[in-house]
Amino acid sequence: MPEMLSLSNDPILFIAVMLTKILSVFIVVVLIVAYATYAERKIIGRMQTRLGPTMTGPLGLLQPIADGLKLFFKEDIIPSQASKVAFVLAPMMILVPAFITVGVIPFGGDIVIRGYTVPLQIADLNVGILYIIAMAGLGVYGIVLAGWSSNNKYSLIGGVRAAAQVISYELAAGLSIVAVFMLAETLSLRGIVEAQSGSILNWYVFSQPLAFCLFFITSIAEINRTPFDLPEAETELVSGFCTEYSSMKYALFFMAEYANMVVIAALISTLFLGGPAGPFPGVINILIKVFGFMFIFIWMRATFPRVRYDQLMFMGWKVFLPLALLNIVITGVVIIL
């Protein structure tokens, strides 16, 4: 095994490789985000006996670009009663954590460049999972700020709902993956992927099915997707926290939502489905898994009604949290035995 590439042994190559990785990951994520909107419209359209976008370019493939352009040229309205700094800051505070979370997700195995090993991961933090949970926690500040600073009652309700929802589901989500790193004995995502390597049966989805289900459901709640899209429930709160937003700021919320979907899909694939493991080259494997999960998210949106606020809280605190704790206890007992 050749030496790991680092800043000390070949600084120029290291920086070049790092920039390449960051840029390519960023571009890929942005592209996925853009085309996730297209995919969502197409898939839901087909499920609802519609066609989805067809007019912009072949098969409507230029639709995300047209949407982006349109939003870019829209008037940027800041309500006169809004708290301006927070109002401008909020969309960025949602988008940035969503994007930088991608940094710790391994998207392939190691490759060798000029005699050095290069991991296909931007940063291999030894506290990778904690980092992701922390970033997810930061994202909610954006929603709360957006809801509060708009000076709109619907937005405020949306923001408060988001705060309560994310806090309670973060607990259950965090606790449900405790069992995973109890098994892997590391917090590094790379380490978790390595612990699942070898056979498909080593994937934690088989040894931790309960944790998988819990994390899947609570993650959907954390990224405010249907059926847990209460903060922006358009039929109750008229889009909730983003009611007052327009133009690019609105687009940032939208991008953040889809970026979060990508991150969560990648995270579930990494934690439970062996990350880049699979029959194809690593990057393709993880993309397949990510797309699979995103399809399920979209499918759920087409199928499920929205839960009610009290039911959401009930499920979070009285169902998912005890189940996650129970799962930790069982895992612990099994490990000790």
């Binding site: 499920m47 006996t49 519609r50 249907t226 059926p227 429930a233 039929t235 499920f304 009604p305």
Partner: peptide, 13 residues
């Protein structure tokens, strides 16, 4: 009614 509660596919059906 279904759309209000969030089930939007029924709406189009």
């Amino acid at each position: 009614h279904a759309l209000d509660i969030g089930a939007m596919t029924v709406f189009l059906y």
